[in-house]
Design a protein around this nucleic acid. Sequence first.
DNA 1: TTGCGCCGTGAATCCGGATTCACTACGCTG
DNA 2: CAGCGTAGTGAATCCGGATTCACGGCGCAA
Lengths: 196, 196
Amino acid sequence: MGTVAFSTRERLLTAAQELIEEGGYGAASVIAIAERAGLAAGTLYRHFASKEELFVEVFRSVCGREEHAMRQAAQAAGSAPAAQRLEIVLATFAQRALRNPRLAWALIAEPVDPRVDAERLAYRARYAAVIAEDLAAGIAAGELPPQNVDLTAAALVGGCGEALVGPLSPLAPDGPPAEEIVAALRTFIGRAVGAR
Amino acid sequence: MGTVAFSTRERLLTAAQELIEEGGYGAASVIAIAERAGLAAGTLYRHFASKEELFVEVFRSVCGREEHAMRQAAQAAGSAPAAQRLEIVLATFAQRALRNPRLAWALIAEPVDPRVDAERLAYRARYAAVIAEDLAAGIAAGELPPQNVDLTAAALVGGCGEALVGPLSPLAPDGPPAEEIVAALRTFIGRAVGAR
DNA sequence: TTGCGCCGTGAATCCGGATTCACTACGCTG
DNA sequence: CAGCGTAGTGAATCCGGATTCACGGCGCAA
């Protein structure tokens, strides 16, 4: 007991994620993935119809985790004023990204095959949806001024993403410390949202 | 007089741009580009060391044009209050993008080879620099609250980009009309920047 | 006219990965 | 033990584009 036997499928998924984490999509070739999972290339196809399918699944699991973390943060900040809740939710997103930069970069900005990219789009929309909910609640409560909720949400997600692209980029090793970035981001968010 | 003879090189560049405009990078294969320019594939290599080099050049010329347009808009709005100038500059960016969605999408979001992608990053930074200048001026003039200029600038560029990704996406044909998007964006920008 | 570059040609070739598939190994069941 | 199914193997193959290069014309200068 204790040691769970990981299925081959799972091993392939983690192998892929690890490789992406270390060297981006480029490093995650079928051969490299299989090798890390202790298998031969052909075996991958016993478990996934294609490499792309495997990637999509990795993408989903990681992004799903992020979305979940954001929702949890929102939950936890339940009673705070709307603007603060939004700051907290997006700061959560940013902090998590900064803690695992290479993976975050892969999810946010690195070029990928179109089908995987579609997944990216989808998850951005979901992140935006999380933001939009809180935004709408804040407006309804009279805490925030009326505004185009969907656009503001998209702009916030995009804004945070872009603000992180620099710091996350595998090319630009070290910029300002994470806390500073997050703090500045919170100021930005608070204002953008129309908090007095 | 009047009719300028376009060099073969120029014809290849416009052919590539047109193809990207119509069908994205995927549509711009070496053969398609050469064909549209009225040439054979091999000829492209008499004028560019590689396909990539050609792409980078297209990218630069288009993005350079955008940057120029933004700077001009900033110039023209010279006397307006800082927040308004920023709105105007970014609205210019957005409007131009919305007028040529497929190309804008290719420049802003479509997956490309890393070297071309590097160009994208570089130009985002230049757009951000344009914003940062006005931002800094506004703060110096006491019109805007002090803030992390670079981060705000990046977040604004990213925010506008993301807000446009939906509307621009070749997959999602028609959302709200352009003016509405631009108007909502201006509200967002004004607030994000800290205008009273 | 001959010689020499320059521009252009496009079929043949290269290239880097994904994908296939005939085969082996192992464990289970009748 | 024979039969069968599942998991695994990895060398061979496929694939889609970029890239090469041996081979014309064409115009200019000697």
